[in-house]
């Protein structure tokens, strides 16, 4: 009898991704869906896609979803989770969405220790709007709004979301991964599972930052994009576990009145 070792995740619809070839969103979508399948939580999961390239995520995820306004995913997710505490609620956000326009909503959801999970796609550009500078764009990186490269003097520095969010007492689990290699993909999946488990156990806010490819706006091939993540982005945004209090008692959502 043949053993199935690879199949289409049940939590992913059959629709064909609109993402560019090589795009990291496709990889992360699949990972999230696989984790949902493996945890058997499709029926209790509510996802909040952003304004960004992943705006049509509801066409792909076979779970209940509501599209948030640009940057406001964590505010929506907060409310959904507070009303339905036994559901798994995740917001899915790009770097412009999370670290620019929506920094307040993300920061405060984390600081309140909302028992939600944030899947954060750091591709160092605004993908959807055509490759403008993001808060995570690296110094000297060219974008359509930094044609001569990002200059610290006028554009400031790349925002290090995992480093910053792990400082917040409300955050329970923060990890940065990269989907630039098979090993990185596996690690990312593990991190997503851990984040969702953290939430299902009522332990509080989890965030998985994923260094993700945008070959289109980087104007690189997929292979070179992976190299770019490994050799350039990872230096500025080192992958790793930035905070893990999932093993600690006292970190429970039960404390909520």
């Amino acid at each position: 009898m043949a053993k199935i070792v690879f199949k289409h995740p049940e939590s992913l619809k059959e629709n064909i991704f609109h993402y560019c070839p090589g795009c990291g969103h496709s990889i992360v979508h699949r990972l999230v869906a696989e984790v949902i399948d493996e945890m058997g939580i499709r029926g209790v999961t509510i996802g909040v896609p952003p304004a960004g390239c992943a705006v049509l995520a509801y066409n792909y995820f076979d779970v209940d979803m509501i599209e948030a306004l640009h940057g406001r995913g964590p505010a929506m997710a907060t409310a959904i989770k507070r009303c339905l505490p036994d559901r798994l609620v995740f917001s899915y956000q790009g770097d412009g969405d999370l670290a620019a326009i929506g920094i307040a909503e993300s920061f405060h959801a984390a600081n309140r220790g909302e028992n939600i999970s944030v899947i954060f796609i750091n591709n160092a550009v605004y993908g959807m709007t055509g490759g403008q500078m993001a808060p995570t764009t690296m110094l000297n990186q060219r974008s359509t709004t930094t044609p001569a490269g990002r200059k610290q003097a006028v554009d400031g520095y790349p925002v290090k979301v995992s480093e910053i969010f792990s400082q917040l007492d409300g955050a329970t689990y923060v990890e940065r991964c990269a989907v630039s290699s098979p090993a990185g993909v596996n690690k990312t999946k593990k991190a997503i599972r851990k984040a969702f488990q953290c939430q299902m156990a009522g332990l509080g806010f989890s965030l998985v930052e994923v260094l993700s490819l945008c070959p289109t706006n980087w104007k690189l091939s997929s292979v070179d994009s992976c190299k770019y993540i490994d050799e350039v982005m990872s230096k500025v945004f080192p992958p790793g576990v930035y905070k893990d209090q999932t093993g600690q008692s006292g970190k429970t959502a039960e404390a909520r009145p």
Partner: peptide, 15 residues
Amino acid sequence: LRGAGSGKSKFIRGL
């Protein structure tokens, strides 16, 4: 929107 349970999933969109 309260989770699909064993049924069909729903979505609410604006775009």
